[in-house]
């Protein structure tokens, strides 16, 4: 309860002109491809031209899979503009007697979409490369490049859109 109260105070306080900390944003991460679950919860902070996101996956309850993203975008034209995206996705897949972890490097681009009232929308295109998978007592498998069959399934493209509320009011 105390944690919740503190969180509310931080959120409310960050919207006041007197708050000197980074801007915050939080909302939904939505996609239609199979790279991760279609609807996840996202939130992050903006530090100058660098935006960050932590994406959590409540849809784990549907199939035992969780897609956790830690992403950052460098926006050379200023906060809220287009940017180069990078980050990491850890997918945990529930299997009999254990969990397999699939670790992916995420590279891509992101750009703002027209604002929907208080909602900031962003589009992103990603190249997700499965670097290593491990866990559940199965042998660890890392990506290789000696022939096409080594990596053809491990490199995938995806797109997603975020819809967020936030403290910044000047998004482009």
């Amino acid at each position: 309860m105390r944690f919740l109260l503190a969180a509310v105070l931080v959120v409310v306080g960050s919207t006041s002109p007197a708050f000197a900390g980074p801007d915050w944003h939080a909302g939904l991460d939505v996609r239609i491809d199979q790279g991760a679950h279609p609807v996840r919860v996202t939130g992050g902070l903006t530090f100058g031209n660098v935006d960050t996101w932590l994406v959590l996956d409540p849809m784990i309850v549907t199939d035992g899979q969780h897609d956790l993203d830690l992403l950052a975008a460098w926006c050379p034209c200023g906060p809220g503009g287009w940017g180069l995206l990078g980050g990491w996705r850890t997918t945990t897949i529930g299997i009999e007697d254990g969990t397999q972890f699939q670790q992916k490097l995420i590279l891509g681009v992101t750009a703002p979409l027209p604002r929907l009232g208080p909602i900031q929308a962003r589009w992103a295109f990603e190249l997700a490369t499965l670097v290593v998978k491990h866990g559940a007592g199965l042998p660890t498998e890392a990506i290789g490049f000696s022939q096409g069959r080594d990596f053809i399934d491990l490199v995938n493209f995806g797109m997603f859109v975020t819809f967020e509320l936030g403290s910044r009011r000047d998004a482009k």
Binding site: Q65, I93, Q102, D153
Partner: peptide, 25 residues
């Protein structure tokens, strides 16, 4: 058929429900 199963592979299997998977794992 697939060479290395990823989250995308499993999602496809759940969506399209193939009769068989020809897998290397």
């Amino acid at each position: 058929f697939m060479f290395s199963a990823t989250a995308e592979t499993f999602a496809q299997v759940e969506q399209f429900q193939p009769t068989m998977v020809v897998t290397s794992e």
